[in-house]
Design a protein around this nucleic acid. Structure first.
Lengths: 195, 195
DNA sequence: AGGGCGCGTACGTTATCACGTACAAGTGTC
DNA sequence: GACACTTGTACGTGATAACGTACGCGCCCT
């Protein structure tokens, strides 16, 4: 077996076990949820076998994830998560001002922030890495103005009053094409916590 | 084999073939690049077999992609937009109007809603049972006016711009003592455990 | 202490993956 | 037209995934 294969198996196995335990499930519980047998799950977690895509998808579903998300939990390990200390208040890029409305406390299940973009401004630079941990989801509401969400190779034009929900662990940014100022509220739900 | 499994296989196969042809490679060319045999690649592309993660990773690498990227090319877009006109609206008690800004989809990690309380109105009646599942947390931001949060035997007065976070599975309600109208945004994050 | 239960893993069996070989069909060159 | 080459797929075989059954271990209750 090639090294790359071993790396593949090693990564998904411990991750599946960590997620399963975080959800307080036994092997038999997850077997019931996913449709994959408990002994098979045990082998996968211990890295003894490489499941097929069909089985891996079912395991991911049992953990309330898509398979690409499950894989991403290990692949994106080089992405750093930037926390409140750097983005508490003030400006990001030129023309971008934000405030974080929720306290930096352990009990926060989601983070709420308000962003103001001057015409032509954006929340980040082209090609910036994702700023949130794997598994995070984000909701954004456009209060005033128009913004464009650029994410994962696609662009979505949003008008005042529109709401968008997306995977916050994919590289993304909001741009204000103008002409007026744009205000949006963002809610980021925590990703799947690691052990 | 379940339909979901079939959908999984159907998706990656045509995608692999499309990418291979776009790169002007034959099955034998890709076999050489990926380390997976040409007959196997043919079977995968035709949906005749579900490759293991180890093999699928090698196929993705031969196409200059990570496996999560290959999978994401077929997954439904994780971005969900709710237009201003699509908000779900309702009225609670007299003087209380609300709109739900997020879609009623499984991928929603949190629900975002906007509430308008006329002077003297409240979001619920005295002693109403909690409306959220155990473990839920809620964040509320007062946009305009003044509201009082009554929860667990205590009362908290909130002014425009204030944010409050609390356990949403405790009986609670927001009251508008007036004199003006009060507007607040609420974010409810799902509980910790699901049955 | 004993019994029952939950949990994770060993093991045997079956199904399927993954490969190597070979065939059929199409294309290009002489 | 004949030949060589490329390409995709059929088929047989070995390896391994995937399952069902059962065991060992630890914990809890009586």
């Amino acid at each position: 077996m090639a090294v790359a294969d071993q790396l593949d198996q090693i990564h998904i196995g411990p991750r599946v076990r960590a997620l399963r335990e975080a959800m307080d499930l036994s092997l038999r519980d997850l077997a019931e949820r996913s449709g994959v047998s408990a002994p098979m799950l045990s082998q996968v977690e211990r890295g003894e076998t490489s499941p097929t895509l069909a089985v891996a998808s079912r395991i991911a579903a049992g953990l309330e994830l898509r398979l690409s998300q499950l894989l991403r939990l290990d692949e994106e390990s080089s992405v750093s998560v930037v926390r409140c200390a750097e983005r508490r208040r003030g400006g990001g890029a030129a023309g971008h001002a934000f405030e974080i409305l929720t306290p930096p406390l352990p009990g926060q299940r989601a983070e709420l922030s308000r962003h103001v973009l001057a015409p032509g401004a954006a929340t980040g630079g082209e090609g910036d890495p994702p700023m949130h941990e794997p598994g995070s989801r984000e909701i954004a509401v456009v209060e005033t103005g128009t913004v464009t969400l650029a994410i994962d190779g696609s662009r979505h034009e949003l008008f005042a009053g529109d709401t968008v929900t997306f995977d916050a662990d994919l590289a993304h940014r909001f741009e204000n094409p103008g002409p007026g100022e744009a205000v949006l509220l963002a809610v980021v739900s925590a990703g799947l916590r690691r052990s």
